[in-house]
Design a protein around this nucleic acid. Structure first.
Lengths: 223, 223
DNA sequence: GATCAACTCAAACGGACGTTTGTATGAACC
DNA sequence: GGTTCATACAAACGTCCGTTTGAGTTGATC
């Protein structure tokens, strides 16, 4: 609507180019340095646009971050749900095993690593650094539907776990996933650690490890 | 040395009171808002000290963060190693199982949750947000020795895993741990999620889950 | 009681920040 | 061909930042 109308007026790409360049630069710098440390001036310089262009196209720095999230996270989550549903369709009568469910969650995130290797840090920041109210709302809106759908799928795959028990183990899995995504960058420059495998291989290993952890019998409450 | 000399001169507690109040406030605000968003003025106000007192007692904001880390993280890691070694001594001839190793790592962190419930966020930020060179150095110095000792212990407990495979699974565990620590705060204010168990119970569940994941056979490389 | 170091405090420093303003530009429309 | 409107740009706005200054206060030491 708004961008389309704009595109029809001008060279049909000038403004879009600007907006996209801003989004690309913002994504990268927010990921690398965080929301506070990445200044609007840095972003403008990296995108090679005028400083005021950022507040013109997006209304504020916060809204820019929101736009970055929307553009990147929404497709990943859509892809996750799409994969999960196709796997569910594939396993006609019987409940799915946990492995394909985990893969449906992981693969879309793994796949963007090639085109945007800095994305993991953005995701980590999304999950952990929702300091401001705005950010918590973004997080909740983007991830809640996906979480619920995967929760229900895993419930069927793991009938030996109660709801709260499964939820806790999903938290453990989520942590492992984020750590896997962030580990490479967190370790860069540090000496003496083993090399990390390629993303696809790390994903296989994480699925294998997590499936074993999810499979193990429920631990009765203490006392 | 420096603080001791100071204490002997003045009321023997005035300056120390100030330094500790600054450290307490800084720890809390760094944890809650992050290094950038927590301003020196906020910290001074929270600690009820004069603004300049912070640059007087610590030389800079970065050095203050470093002091906060030192005070809190170093004891936790010392306790971890102490626990691990006592467990190793206890299991005379035979290699330790992985469960007590995990517990030795987790318990010291769990225990400070009561006196400083905001610490998990500080730890998460430590691990994930080492944007500045200074912070990476702190992290490396504080955690490397501990990591190595736990790595060696787990190596003996899990002889079916190669070094790189074990390292990767330790990353998964570390992620689960951080998520467990941060989950409560990350979820507060959000509706419709199951209640999280008490810290001690979460730790038990995490040990159970992780031991199963560590135990499972090694996955041969693909292709 | 003078000396001196440790400490507190109010005020100011220069700089970076996010945002706004006002003007210029240039294609699309009448 | 003049008007319109989305966009670009340079410059400035006020605010907050981390840090420094310099004068004051305190209490132990001799």
């Amino acid at each position: 609507m708004n961008p389309a109308a704009a595109a029809s007026r001008r060279t049909a790409s000038a403004a879009l180019q600007t907006k996209d360049r801003i989004l690309d630069a913002a994504e990268k710098l927010f990921s690398l340095y965080g929301f506070d440390a990445a200044s609007v001036r840095m972003i403008a310089a990296a995108a090679k646009v005028n400083l005021a262009a950022i507040n013109y196209h997006f209304q504020s720095k916060e809204a820019l971050l929101l736009a970055v999230y929307e553009r990147r996270v929404a497709p990943i989550n859509a892809r996750r749900v799409e994969l999960l549903r196709s796997y569910l369709k594939g396993s006609v009568g019987r409940p799915l095993k946990s492995e394909p469910i985990l893969e449906a969650f992981l693969r879309p995130a793994i796949e963007i690593l090639d085109e945007a290797p800095h994305i993991p840090m953005l995701m980590v920041r999304t999950v952990y650094l929702q300091d401001r109210e705005t950010f918590r709302e973004i997080f909740d809106a983007l991830f809640r539907p996906v979480s619920l759908e995967f929760f229900e799928a895993l419930r069927l795959a793991l009938p030996h776990l109660s709801g709260p028990q499964l939820f806790l183990r999903m938290q453990f899995f989520l942590g492992s996933f984020l750590q896997m995504m962030a580990a490479r960058r967190a370790m860069e420059g540090l000496q003496g650690f083993p090399e990390l495998p390629a993303p696809e291989e790390m994903m296989r290993q994480l699925i294998h490890y997590t499936a074993a952890g999810l499979r193990v019998r429920a631990l009765e409450s203490s006392k």
